[in-house]
């Protein structure tokens, strides 16, 4: 019973961590129309930075400053924000899909650095012994998982409320106006590039925070946590939940993470060991088909965006 309850806490914790990343992506895509294909890269930046700052020192790689966890998370947000600033400043003035291609390239390059810069990142083995929050409770599994869940839920709650206020503020309205009709909004004297860059940077900071929380929660990180499929999962969460809607982003994260873990357990149960790698591949196929189907038949997701006036000229 305690096992099930603490598993449930574990599940909710991870789902909400993905939820924070999805909220960040929602600010970028849902509010500002910015297409980020490098979600995994920004999450990796957050994860590694927080790991360096909070982990205990080892002589195999850099970092290990054993500083408090909140400091690690703040630094993670700052580092991801900085990475987004660099990428965004270079590409946001160009066509929208150049941002997509650039973030994609950045994520691939960061993955290469994580994999190969052993002295910095621990190489393929990554970084271990990352302290978990509430480590003092670790001999009481339920209390430990529940405390972690509450912490992550509190963070997700703060992020949610902050984003709700932000998207309803004049700043959020300008963003949406820019997404709908750039020329009209620009003619009101709003600099599109500045607003977009701000949204992109804040969104990336949240994705970095999610990466840091995930690292802290797992206790270790490795480059293969941050493959393109991670980006893909966050996108499916957002699109399924309903982009442009913060509640949808959280709901999408919980639903998709639920289906993902359930199907994983099912495959583990049903498939012979030699078929499990293939089963994992099939799971990605299925989620790709789900994404395409949602885009085709339910483009507004489970909960669509609140109605805004939008004009489409064929």
């Amino acid at each position: 019973m305690i096992g099930l309850a603490s598993y449930l806490c574990f599940f909710v914790t991870l789902a909400l961590i993905y939820g924070v990343a999805t909220l960040g992506l929602n600010l970028q895509w849902g509010s500002a129309g910015l297409f980020n294909v490098g979600v995994a890269g920004f999450a990796a930046v957050g994860a590694y930075v927080s790991a360096w700052i909070t982990a205990t020192p080892v002589d195999t790689h850099w970092g290990g400053f054993a500083l408090p966890i909140p400091l690690g998370w703040l630094a993670a947000m700052a580092a991801s924000a900085l990475a987004a600033f660099v990428v965004g400043a270079a590409t946001l003035r160009l066509r929208a899909d150049y941002l997509a291609i650039t973030t994609f390239g950045a994520a691939i390059s960061l993955e290469l650095v994580a994999l190969n810069a052993d002295r910095l990142t621990g190489g393929p083995f990554g970084i271990a012994f990352i302290p978990r929050p509430f480590a003092a409770l670790s001999d009481q599994p339920l209390a430990f998982s529940a405390a972690n869940m509450l912490l992550v839920a509190a963070v997700a709650g703060v992020v949610f409320v902050a984003l709700e206020r932000l998207t309803r503020s004049p700043w959020g309205r300008v963003l949406r106006a820019l997404r709908e009709d750039e020329a009209a909004a620009a003619s009101l004297g709003k600099s599109p590039a500045k607003f977009r860059l701000q949204a992109f940077v804040i969104g990336a900071a949240l994705i970095g925070l999610a990466g840091a929380m995930q690292a802290q929660f797992f206790g270790f990180i490795a480059p293969d946590n941050y493959l393109p499929v991670f980006t893909f999962q966050i996108w499916v969460m957002l699109v399924l939940g309903g982009s442009g809607n913060n509640k949808g982003a959280l709901l999408g994260a919980v639903v998709v993470w639920g289906v993902w873990t359930a199907s994983g357990s099912l495959f583990n149960l049903l498939l012979a060991p030699e078929w499990q790698a293939r089963g994992a591949a099939l799971r990605v196929v299925a989620i790709g088909v789900v994404l395409a189907s949602v885009l085709l038949w339910r483009p507004r997701g489970l909960i669509g965006e609140r109605a805004t006036v939008s004009r489409h000229v064929e």
Binding site: F35, V37, D97, A100, P228, V229, T231, F232, W235, V236, V239, V284, V285, I287, G288, V289, L291, A292, L295
Partner: peptide
């Protein structure tokens, strides 16, 4: 673009 990204993984 999103759809093509999904199609690519699938």
């Amino acid at each position: 673009v999103i759809a093509s990204f999904g199609a690519s993984l699938a």
